[in-house]
Design a protein around this nucleic acid. Structure first.
Lengths: 209, 209
DNA sequence: GTCTATATGGGGATAGAC
DNA sequence: GTCTATCCCCATATAGAC
């Protein structure tokens, strides 16, 4: 059992610890404000040790950005096996919210990058545009079929994205809104239900059977 | 005409230029990532000149944070003169969106601060909680009267906030979604209509007359 | 009020001992 | 692989000439 085979490699274990720490640091401070010093400290190592494992601050950041994009590419697409708008949209909302709940810091890195101007996302926009255009076409089909009320499909998609992303970016705000209050914090399932209900009622035709 | 009376004071003019520059810098880089060097450059002055006018980076930041909070406190409250849910919510959505459109960078400072953990907002949360609780009560009254469908009022308010804030925080994303596309970018009025329609349909009772 | 110069601290990154 | 020591750059902020 050499150093390459115990666990999945000591090096990879260290890198995972580093990535975990970096996700927190980058999501809180942004790329410019994050320091390798702080990342090292969060990961429980010295700065020099960190620099032994990573190529540089920028490479680490880009790798993590790619992680969010890759995860979203998997999670966020409309499920082709489903045809009913209710089913497709419900699943989309559930998946996106689940990601915001389980990977809030990773989600926030994207937001932080967009706030900074999104220069590290140059290569990402075309693909994101394609994705939204495909969703738009499907939604417009639904509208033509009378399955959805007439609406601006592109804005509609962005609005769903906005609400679901909110629970990652503003988790601190949400928490404070339940602090020192009679009401117990909303559960994830409850939030999923409320968001889904709001969106579906907002887009279904008034003449729904 | 001494130096205190021309314009509204040279000092105040300089400070406004500094604040304008600082809003951009802080909103893009966050507090940790922003530099007084860059703020000075954006404001068209030397760093030493900047430090002659401001007390420090932190004081400048806190002043601007206070600006957003103060502006929102004015703009965001439910209009007591209105009683119909449709009218109150429409006006709220319009005002909040208008602020996102006209003061996007200032809006983003709040988001950036929340991402960073919101430590500079400690004194703000109690008041924000009060505001949301008051809105919550009114909405629950509407629900009791049958003017709104049953829903979680607190989450509902946060969802409206999320959608309207989106147009400030993710303006870059919105822009890219219309880049290289047949469709012309959505106008502000169009966005206001679409958001309002989505929210109102999402919360009004199905038996609406 | 505005500049040059500087004090002091921390940043990313590497060299080289162990 | 991990440490100490160090390089070089840039940060905030101030002192003091003009």
């Amino acid at each position: 059992m050499n150093s390459e085979t115990n666990g999945r490699g000591r090096r990879e274990q260290m890198l995972e610890a580093i990535r975990h720490a970096a996700i927190s640091e980058f999501s809180e401070k942004g790329f410019a404000g994050a320091t390798t010093q702080a990342i090292a400290q969060r990961a429980g190592m010295k700065k020099t040790q960190l620099h032994y494992y990573i190529q540089g601050k920028e490479e680490l950041y880009e790798e993590l950005l790619q992680r969010v994009l890759a995860a979203w590419a998997e999670i966020i697409r409309f499920d082709d096996a489903l045809t009913e708008p209710q089913a497709v949209l419900s699943r989309y909302i559930r998946n996106k919210l689940h990601f915001s709940f389980t990977q809030p810091a990773l989600s926030r890195i994207f937001t932080s990058e967009v706030l900074a101007g999104g220069h590290y996302l140059e290569k990402y926009w075309p693909q994101a545009r394609e994705n939204i255009l495909r969703k738009e076409q499907l939604i417009n089909q639904w509208i033509a079929q009378g399955a959805l009320r007439p609406l601006d499909a592109r804005l509609f998609i962005m609005h769903i994205w906005a609400i679901t992303q909110y629970y990652a970016d503003f988790a601190v705000q949400v928490k404070h809104m339940y602090h020192d209050t009679d009401a117990a914090p909303a559960t994830q399932e409850h939030i999923i239900r409320e968001v889904t209900e709001l969106v579906l009622r907002g887009c279904l035709p008034t003449t729904a059977s």
